[in-house]
């Protein structure tokens, strides 16, 4: 086992699949010799050649179209969208084309494409880099949306995504890229897409989260433990489709839930989780299901991210509200 950061685990996953399957192609802006702006593709072009790992012209829609076309020729494209705030430039290729390929062709064509893209707040990027836009794609039938919270999951989920015969959006929170290392097996393994993980067991309240907010939730759980509150923390890992079974099992145990997301409150993933819980387990609830989210403004100007982004204190506060309901 090796100690890896999340970005190293991501590179390792791509290296693993480039080795395993000659149809895997990695491409995007600056991913070639430069190794990507975050170095996610560091060394891959040297190892696998320019035929397999290559730069594209600077145009996101073109990158999306390239992925669609290469998939039609039997390849397994892994394009990178340099920052997910640029997704608006490639929305048609993702939601209008890739996600509908199997459906509109009546199963004749498939689109085994994994779109990787950095996102997430707290690293003081310019506008349209950090936005949590997973909800946009989670609303699109036909594509899965995966967001790892740690290096181990990142490697296993990315390998699973690349091997998936349907399109997957793989979102990488920038703040987690190098924030910590953990043990990651050097051999190949997968983490199942669509399965959440109970990161911490508890009996009084369930915190449901994903991405960087998993860490805020774990921190909140530690604080709460000091007050004698036992919080269970669930990492969704895949936000579309949602792992309902793991959620409902936990709700039945704790009877109280707070859903935490970095994205704004309106619509989005957390609203969907709340809706599923009330439809399936309302009689198990002792309090309304509350949400901790960013406010419904456009993403924060970077100098104010600390006050705009949700944090562990916001979570503790909401937990106290559901406990005292």
């Amino acid at each position: 086992m090796a100690q890896m950061t999340m970005i190293q685990a991501i590179t390792d996953a791509m290296r693993t699949e480039l080795k395993n399957d000659e149809n895997v192609l990695v491409f995007g802006e600056d991913v070639g010799q430069n190794g990507g702006v975050f170095r996610a593709t560091e060394g891959l072009q040297d190892e696998f050649g320019e035929e397999r790992v290559f730069d594209t012209p600077l145009a996101e829609s073109g990158i999306g179209g390239l992925a669609v076309g290469l998939a039609l020729e039997g390849y397994r494209p892994v394009p990178e969208i340099q920052f997910f705030g640029f997704v608006y430039e490639v929305m048609d290729s993702i939601s209008g084309q890739l996600a509908r390929m199997r459906y509109r062709s009546g199963g004749h064509h498939t689109a085994p494409v994994t779109i990787r893209s950095p996102f997430g707040g707290g690293v003081h990027t310019p506008e349209l880099h950090a936005d949590s836009l997973e909800g946009l794609i989670a609303q699109q039938p036909g594509i899965k949306v995966v967001i790892p919270s740690n290096p181990y999951d990142a490697k296993g989920l990315l390998i699973a995504a690349i091997r998936d015969n349907d399109p997957v959006l793989f979102l990488e929170h920038m703040k987690l890229y190098r924030s910590f290392r953990e043990e990651v097996p050097e051999e190949e393994y997968t983490v199942e897409i669509g399965k959440a993980e109970v990161k911490r067991e508890g009996t009084d309240v369930t915190l449901i989260s994903y991405g960087a907010m998993v860490h805020a939730s774990l921190k909140a759980a530690e604080e709460l433990e000091k007050d004698g509150v036992s919080a269970e923390v669930i990492d969704l890992r895949t936000v579309s489709p949602i792992d309902i079974d793991t959620i409902i099992e936990s709700v039945k145990k704790t009877n109280r839930v707070v859903v935490v997301q970095e994205a704004q409150r309106q619509a989005g993933v957390s609203a969907n989780v709340v809706a599923e819980i009330q439809e399936r387990a309302i009689l198990h609830l002792e309090a309304p299901v509350l949400r901790v989210t960013a406010p419904d403004t456009v993403y924060s100007f970077s100098a104010a991210e600390e006050v705009w982004l949700p944090n562990h204190n916001d979570i503790v506060e909401k937990v106290n509200t559901v406990l005292n309901f």
């Binding site: 073109g62 992925a67 669609v68 076309g69 039609l72 020729e73 039997g74 509109r104």
Partner: peptide
């Protein structure tokens, strides 16, 4: 072939991809 594209221009970017795939093969 693909079935007819409805979004004007989407087939153009996809054609670059199919053609690159043909070249690689």
């Amino acid at each position: 072939a693909l079935s007819p594209q409805i979004i004007i221009g989407a087939q153009y970017v996809q054609t670059a991809g199919v053609a690159l795939g043909i070249k690689k093969r």
